[in-house]
Write a protein that binds this DNA or RNA. Structure first.
Length: 905
RNA sequence: GCCCAAGUGGCGGAACUGGCAGACGCGCACGACUCAAAAUCGUGUUCCCUUACGGGAGUGUGGGUUCGAUUCCCACCUUGGGCACCA
């Protein structure tokens, strides 16, 4: 009975119930196509994109939402600010995770993929994400991959002209070869050494008649050395767990494969590659034009690894027909080269080794071959090597120097041979010490009197800072080390002993995979060699197969589908493309997602691209993000697109770890969320309990966007409480009154307009956590304003209007519901962002801390615009200051404008 | 080994360009409401001394520059990431 009395006396307002309002609005938005991208108009465009996910059977965790919620907030924020926004989503559906799941579950990957991506879409909708679903696609559907194949064909039919520094149709190369042979192209590379990767290094100098004499098969083979997509034999990384080759970019420093974690093995196989080395220079250079995290830019620069130096030829004593060519970044130290080292794989090793050394050298080479790459390149291991018995002549001083073989020289970098300068290279120094070889100083370090290498306890390298003076170096002697490199190249070129060269660490990008679940490579092996499938026959569809298991021979399961493999003109290529191919252009397809007649309408792609804001994990630093840049540049060169970089701005979100610490190797650590560890928190469970808006709010509030952070299960309820307060202060401000408070309408208005300024600034800076906290502060201010009795004022109405608009990007469902209940027309998400009134936001008075000798002793409040002298006087008179100054003389009074006063005694 | 980032209360974190350290939230404590609980509202919450007023210390460690340092400089420690015989 008492309960009844209480009820009638104090009617409860309807409570905030996200599970009721969220599905309601989600359905309405979807039915109205509220977030459908509009056609180009007078507004500026904004393309905000997430790294498109591969749909896994585990679905999304709250960690994944860390990516998708902020981009959604940005998309909504830009819409309200009057931009024409494209915010799409699709699926990177091909690839090993789905295929491995299919093998394990004995299911069809097509079926799994549809099921998994449907679940992702359900979860995305659950989070209230404002994707334009009319543009969704799946990279494993032939409506998409036929265009991946089309681009492959364009790249296959292109070569890189070092004279223009860009890709051209291969037909134009054929014309040139018929008229001039390879001479002009090779000359161009000599003249522009940074173009070293434009064509294969194996291309010989041939005349036009030699080209004309070639059979079609020979010509095709020859052209493979130029094509930007080419099949070639090379040493590749074989992943024994996934039974597939992987790209260099997919192997970490420990030699482990990116996905499976298996130690890769080296195999020499014929594989499909993209000639990304042709673009090395542009890929490095154009990094200056993007707004990306410095870390990612640095990683790409390091991966490309451009270095400048010279190639120098050394004559082999007693063998006039062969020379050893070395690459060095320090040609100025050539006078200090006291021996040479060949890589064990170097083709000249067998030829130059003297009979008495043959057995020893062969044993060493065999031993080196047997070692794993990881063991071989272990920097902590002592240097090993053997003398070949042969000597070479140092071209600049005519000295005879011994030629050694050692595994610290890699065949895969430079020329596979080095001139060893032990005095100025630590590796050579270690080697010379161990084997008693001559060490000669050619750079005299600053502060060292002697010019004899016996004073050196380690190699001296000036690291390009130019400290030191050249000694024992013929014409270079006496020169500053800083100027010596260019001078040395001049000397070497004049002597015709070598020339300026550029080298890159990056290697060609291996794209073929011996797997079923990928885009078929549109190539047929004919009598005349590899030819592309005619564009009119695209797509080359993936046939159905009985078994998805990789074969024991390391071939794709597709080899067993004879009907598919055999065509009237030849056999189909059975390798498929790695998913990097799909992701290298998907962001362009969104501009014209369902075009069946062409890859996309250039008008659409050039309007929407480049992506204005691209958000995803940092683990793709040199994978997807490098590959995409290359494809963009190829398509630019071929006139397909009109931009040179695909992603204007890039941001990496931090990871979310499991909430509970676990003991691992004796330490307490937060682990990654993973199904196998059983510590995954799903958005589904959080939304069911607290609603999507609270989850979204917490995803933003949890930490700085880029920081890795453990999930806190108390975090979402905290945000939920805030949303509850918003609900009550907007709809029933007179409930739950607090204590008495004072606030003027001017102060309320100031708080509202300061909130606009702050939140706008924070969104632009990706500082979502402080944006949320500013909204919480503004909400707290409204409660205080309510207690001060301002709810009937126009300023109150304005403040509430501003609050709901500010809230719309973060809590779209709650904002929509409040907007409707306020009697305003649908939809809040079609409203404009509130405009801050600078005058309203301005402070009337400021509080200035007063320090004595740097310690806070008091505060004074002065009107804005009070002059410096008055402030200093007021500060000196303040009670706190007087207590500490006493009658001691004031030495100095410092006033930092509007900041603080410091009295020094 | 080299390069980069970070280190702030019990916890996540905030602090524009060298100027009030700890915003906001969580947690905790106390109080109001209630028969009671939940919810809500209010107050407090870096540590130490003090009933209080107030004072002292304090942003990984040690030093430096400065009237003033979480912020700049030097050395070191720890954690995370990247690279690793690239000639």
């Amino acid at each position: 009975m008492s309960g009844l009395v209480a009820f009638s006396r104090c009617p409860m307002s309807e409570r905030y119930n996200p599970s009721e309002i969220e599905p309601k609005w989600q359905q309405r938005w979807l039915a109205d196509e509220l977030y459908k991208t509009e056609a180009a108009d007078a507004r500026p465009k904004y393309y905000v994109l997430d790294f498109y996910p591969y749909p896994s059977g585990d679905g999304l965790s709250v960690g994944h939402a860390r990516n998708y919620v902020p981009t959604d907030v940005v998309a909504r924020f830009y819409r309200m600010r009057g931009y024409n926004v494209m915010h799409p989503m699709g699926f990177d559906a091909f690839g090993l995770p789905t295929e491995n799941a299919a093998i394990k579950l004995k299911a069809n990957p097509h079926v799994l993929n549809e099921k998994y991506s449907a679940n992702y879409i359900r979860q995305f909708k659950l989070l209230g994400l404002s994707y334009d679903w009319s543009r969704v696609f799946n990279s494993s559907h032939d409506s998409f991959y036929r265009w991946t194949q089309w681009i492959f064909i364009q790249i296959f039919n292109s070569w890189y002209d070092p004279r223009l520094g860009q890709a051209r149709p291969i037909s134009e190369l054929e014309t040139e070869l018929a008229a001039h042979g390879t001479g002009r192209i090779l000359d161009a590379i000599d003249a522009k050494p940074e173009q070293i990767g434009a064509i294969a290094r194996s291309v010989p100098r041939i005349e036009a008649d030699a080209w004309q004499a070639k059979t079609p098969r020979e010509r095709n083979r020859f052209l493979m050395q130029f094509r930007l997509a080419f099949r070639g034999e090379s040493t590749v990384n074989w992943d024994p767990v996934d039974k597939v080759v992987v790209a260099n970019e997919e192997v970490d420093a420990q030699g482990r494969a990116w996905r499976s974690g298996a130690l890769v093995e080296k195999k020499t196989l014929k594989q499909w590659n993209f000639r990304i080395t042709a673009y090395a220079d542009r890929l490095a250079r154009d990094l200056d034009t993007v707004n990306w995290p410095q870390k990612i830019v640095t990683m790409q620069r390091n991966w490309i690894g451009k270095s400048q130096g010279a190639e120098v030829d050394f004559k082999i004593d007693g063998d006039a027909s062969e020379k050893i060519r070395v690459y060095t970044t320090r040609p100025d130290t050539l006078w200090g080269a006291t021996f040479m080292v060949l890589s064990p794989e170097h083709p000249l090793v067998a030829r130059i080794t003297t009979p008495e050394k043959r057995a020893e050298v062969e044993a060493y080479v065999a031993h080196a071959r047997a070692m794993t790459d990881v063991d071989r390149t272990d920097v902590s291991k002592a240097k090993t090597g053997v003398f070949t018995g042969a000597t070479a002549t140092n071209p600049v001083n005519g000295e005879r120097i011994p030629i050694w073989v050692a595994d610290y020289v890699l065949m895969s970098y430079g020329t596979g041979a080095i001139m060893a300068v032990p005095a100025h290279d630590q590796r050579d120094f270690d080697f010379a010490r161990k084997f008693g070889l001559t060490i000669r100083m050619v750079i005299q370090p600053p502060g060292v009197e002697s010019t004899d290498a016996s004073v050196l306890t380690a190699a001296y390298s000036d690291h390009g800072d130019g400290l030191g003076r050249m000694v024992n170096s013929g014409p270079l002697t006496g020169m500053d080390a800083g100027k010596s490199i260019a001078a040395a190249i001049d000397v070497i070129e004049e002597m015709k002993a070598g020339q300026r060269r550029v080298n890159y660490r990056i290697r060609d990008w291996l794209i073929s995979r011996q797997r079923y679940w990928g885009t078929p490579i549109p190539i047929i092996h004919t009598e005349d060699g590899e030819v592309t499938v005619p564009e009119s026959d695209l797509p080359v569809r993936l046939p159905d197969v009985e078994s998805y298991e990789p074969t024991q021979t390391g071939e794709s399961p597709l080899v067993q589908v004879h009907d598919w493999v055999n065509t009237p003109t030849g056999q189909r290529e059975t390798d498929t493309m790695a998913t990097w191919a799909c992701s290298s252009w998907y962001y362009m397809r969104f501009a014209d997602a369902h075009n069946g007649a062409r890859v996309f309408d250039p008008k659409e792609v050039n309007y929407w691209l480049p992506v204005d804001m691209y958000v995803g994990g940092a683990e793709h630093a040199v994978l997807h993000l490098l590959y995409s840049r290359m494809w963009t540049k190829v398509l630019y060169d071929l006139g397909v697109v009109g931009f040179i970089e695909p992603f204007k701005s890039l941001r990496n979100q931090g990871m979310i770890l499991a909430p509970e610490q676990k003991e691992v190797d004796g330490r307490m650590v937060y682990e990654k969320m993973s199904k196998s560890k059983g510590n995954v928190i799903t958005p589904d469970e959080v939304v069911a309990e607290h609603g999507a808006d609270a989850l979204r709010g917490y995803e933003m509030f949890i930490s700085d966007f880029s920081q890795t952070v453990p999930w806190n299960t108390n975090g979402v309820p905290g945000v939920r409480r805030w949303l509850d307060r918003v609900w009550r202060i907007v709809l029933s401000p007179m409930d739950d009154r607090g204590g008495p408070a004072t606030m003027t309408t001017r102060e309320l208005r100031r708080a509202a307009h300061q909130a606009i300024q702050k939140i706008e600034h924070d969104f632009d800076a990706f500082a979502f956590n402080t944006a949320v906290s500013s909204m919480m502060e503004f909400t707290n201010t409204l409660f205080k304003a309510r207690d001060a009795g301002l709810t009937e004022t126009p300023e109150w109405a304005e403040a509430i209007d501003i609050l709901v608009r500010l809230l719309a990007p973060i809590a779209p469902h709650l904002a929509e519901e409040l907007w409707e209940r306020m009697g305003l027309p649908y939809s809040i998400h079609k409203q404009t962002w509130p405009k801050a009134d600078a005058a309203a936001a301005a402070e009337d008075s400021i509080e200035i801390p007063v320090q004595v000798n740097g310690k806070l002793r008091d505060r004074i409040t002065v009107a804005v615009g009070t002059d410096e002298e008055t402030i200093k006087t007021l500060a000196a008179q303040s009670e706190g200051a007087r207590r500490f100054v006493g009658d001691k003389p004031i030495r100095q009074v410092i006033y930092a404008k509007g900041r603080l006063v410091n009295i020094v005694i």
